[in-house]
């Protein structure tokens, strides 16, 4: 059984009198421990796919299953809890809460799951050390560089020790050197801790860390390439 199993997924958005078909019947399955890069032109449905993979959104048709559980069968609250435990997100624009320090940002996912304050703080600090920000614990996002912000975001994604990391163009807002460092960090984390990562990217260098590349066009999978490292 795959970790994530998507079958016959379509996603439609009604837009005035017309309908936007973001995904048009798509089958993907992702195994535990895999790093999968999703590539494709702008508007091909990559982010939409990521939202469904990350249990943020439900498909219009088709079945999305995480460890065999049909996500559509869950109530909203259950979905939120599942997402909080199993999935960590890294975004192109970092999306840190501006009013919170690095540590508080990393604590946030644990807060929502009800982790005790002491445990939370300890884990947050450990994660920040892990991503190389031992000295930036008390900094707020606007006191950090882009690369540092993305490291905080990665630490936050790891907060609840999720099985799956979903990264939507994590290097899109970084220069190539910083981007390479972030990719190296993500890859190292996945390899060391056996995490599964789905990496959405335009950048062939980024895709190069993946075990498999899935190409989308117009909401369909047009190519799958397996890499052997």
């Amino acid at each position: 059984m795959s970790l994530l199993d998507l079958k016959g997924i379509t996603k439609e958005y009604p837009l005035g009198p017309t309908t936007v078909h973001a995904l048009r019947g798509l089958d993907v399955s992702i195994d535990k421990g895999e790093i999968v890069a999703i590539m494709g032109p702008s508007g091909s449905g990559k982010s939409t796919l990521m939202h469904i993979l990350g249990a943020l959104d439900v498909p219009t048709e088709g079945v999305a299953a995480l460890e065999g559980t049909d996500l559509q069968s869950l109530r909203e609250d259950e979905l939120v809890t599942l997402r909080g435990r199993k999935v960590g997100f890294v975004f192109q624009t970092f999306n840190l809460i501006q009013t919170l320090t690095a540590q508080q940002n990393v604590e946030l996912p644990m807060t929502f799951l009800g982790v005790r304050k002491g445990d939370r703080a300890e884990r947050a600090r450990a994660l920040l050390v892990k991503v190389g920000l031992a000295e930036r614990v008390k900094h707020r996002p606007n006191e950090l560089s882009g690369g540092e912000r993305q490291r905080v975001a990665i630490a936050r994604a790891l907060a609840n020790d999720p099985e799956i990391l979903l990264a939507d163009e994590p290097t899109g807002n970084l220069d190539s050197e910083t981007g390479a460092a972030i990719l190296a960090l993500l890859k190292g984390l996945c390899r060391d801790e056996g995490k599964t990562m789905i990496l959405i990217t335009h950048d062939p260098d980024a895709a190069a860390i993946a075990d498999r590349i899935v190409r989308l066009r117009d909401g369909r999978v047009v190519e799958e390439v397996r890499h052997d490292h």
Binding site: V80, T81, G84, F89, N95, L108, F112
Partner: peptide, 16 residues
Amino acid sequence: TKDIGVMKAVGAKNRH
């Protein structure tokens, strides 16, 4: 709005 989206993505329920 974006913060709300992020908080929900990392596990915030509606009541939170």
